[in-house]
Simulated assay, not measured.
Amino acid sequence: MNAEDGSQEPPEHARFAAHLAALEQVTDADEEGLVAGVLADPDPVMAGAAVVRHLDRRAEELYAASSWEEWAEAMARVVGDRPFLVRRLREWALFRAVALGLPWEQDDLLASSDWLQLRTAAGSSPGALAVLTERGRTKRIRGTARAGLTRPAPA
Rank of each mutant, 00 (worst) to 15 (best):
D43H: 06
H54R: 09
E73S: 12
T133C: 11
E61Q: 13
S67A: 10
A22M: 10
S67C: 12
A65Q: 04
D30N: 15
G123R: 06
R77A: 15
R119I: 00
D28E: 11
L23D: 01
D114V: 11
P44F: 07
L118V: 06
Y63Q: 10
S124M: 04
L110Y: 05
G33T: 04
V79T: 09
L116Q: 02
V131K: 00
E105H: 08
A122T: 09
A99L: 09
A47R: 05
D30A: 15
E105R: 06
D107I: 08
A145C: 09
A76D: 09
K139D: 07
V51R: 03
R15T: 13
A18W: 10
A111G: 07
E32Q: 13
Q25I: 09
M46W: 04
E31W: 10
E31V: 15
A50W: 00
A21G: 11
A50N: 06
S124T: 15
F95L: 11
P126N: 02
V98Q: 03
V51C: 09
L102T: 05
G136M: 04
G37T: 13
A128K: 01
A17I: 13
P11Y: 06
E69H: 01
A111E: 06
V52L: 13
R90H: 03
P11C: 14
A47D: 14
